[in-house]
């Protein structure tokens, strides 16, 4: 299983876009998700965009979709049972006047909210799967962020899947000691398990980051600052025509939808 939210090294139009362009697109898409009343359409649309323009089918990130399923069902159910009002599309009598009511309005509102959240999740997944962390970091550097901060930001993204993998190993190591705590849905078992696993996980992360920091220093991370040498980037990081087109298109679509929403058309 691919760790969640990790880069998928492919050659595709989405991968070739500048990270700043994709960030702009994702932000516009999120706004649109909250403006349009049919988020499930946008949910399917974003998956289609990832597949067609990113070359990544939903099978590649199905664990993420599976993880979202309980969230979608839970939010919808809570709204259907507890938040929504009359009319009810189903009523199950319990005792006397006591009954469970399934609200049509609650179902609709719950589904809209759940799909909005799911769309946001998939949109960010698209960004993570098609954006190389260092491309993003260096794009921020080009935009004026200090090099060390930009690089460390990118490095943190790079470290994330490794920590996920370590967590899985620790989860299995706990099972080897007859503890299923991290696989339990029972919070009384799960959270103590999480606390126990935090020790090897955090110590491992600290050790790893210290060793990597040392490797960086020995490869000259601080040479520009201490010697005055000007750092040069090997990769060309600049906006291309397609970036301008996508950014302009995203902003235009957002403005049009805001106007349509304000005028009551949608």
């Amino acid at each position: 299983m691919r760790p969640l939210y990790t880069f998928s090294a492919l050659e595709s139009p989405l991968h070739r876009l500048d990270p700043r362009t994709k960030l702009m697109f994702v932000l516009c898409y999120l706004f649109v998700t909250f403006l349009l009343p049919y988020p499930w359409v946008l949910f399917i649309l974003i998956m289609a965009i990832i597949w067609v323009f990113g070359g990544i089918s939903p099978i590649d990130y199905y664990p993420f979709l599976v993880l979202m399923l309980p969230l979608i069902i839970g939010i919808t159910l809570v709204h259907t049972l507890f938040v929504g009002d009359f009319p009810y599309f189903l009523t199950i009598p319990i005792v006397g006047d006591l009954a469970i009511h399934f609200s049509s309005e609650g179902l609709r509102n719950g589904a809209i909210l759940a799909f909005r959240l799911a769309t946001m999740g998939v949109a960010f997944t698209m960004f993570a799967m098609t954006t190389e962390p260092f491309h993003l970091g260096m794009a921020f550097y080009r935009s004026g962020l200090p090099y060390k901060i930009a690089f460390m930001f990118a490095f943190a993204l790079r470290l994330y899947p490794l920590i996920q993998e370590e967590f899985i190993v620790i989860q299995n190591a706990l099972r080897a000691r007859s503890s299923n705590a991290l696989n339990s849905f029972n919070p009384i078992k799960f959270f103590p398990g999480l606390a126990i696993s935090a020790v090897p996980l955090s110590l491992g992360a600290i050790r790893r980051s210290q060793e990597i920091a040392l490797a960086m220093e020995m490869r000259g991370l601080s040479i520009p600052e201490s010697t005055g040498i000007v750092r040069k980037l090997y990769r060309v990081i600049e906006f291309k025509s397609v970036d301008y087109i996508v950014m302009a298109g995203s902003l235009l679509a957002l403005v049009v939808i805001v106007v349509l929403r304000l005028t009551g058309v949608v």
Partner: peptide, 29 residues
């Protein structure tokens, strides 16, 4: 001085091999 330690996992911090190899050169201008 260049140092290579025993654990290769903790010496690679770029995503692509080409970026990893040129990274030291970028720092040297």
């Amino acid at each position: 001085v260049g140092v290579v330690s025993q654990d290769p996992e903790n010496q690679l911090f770029n995503l692509l091999v080409k970026d990893e190899v040129v990274w030291g050169l970028e720092n040297r201008g």
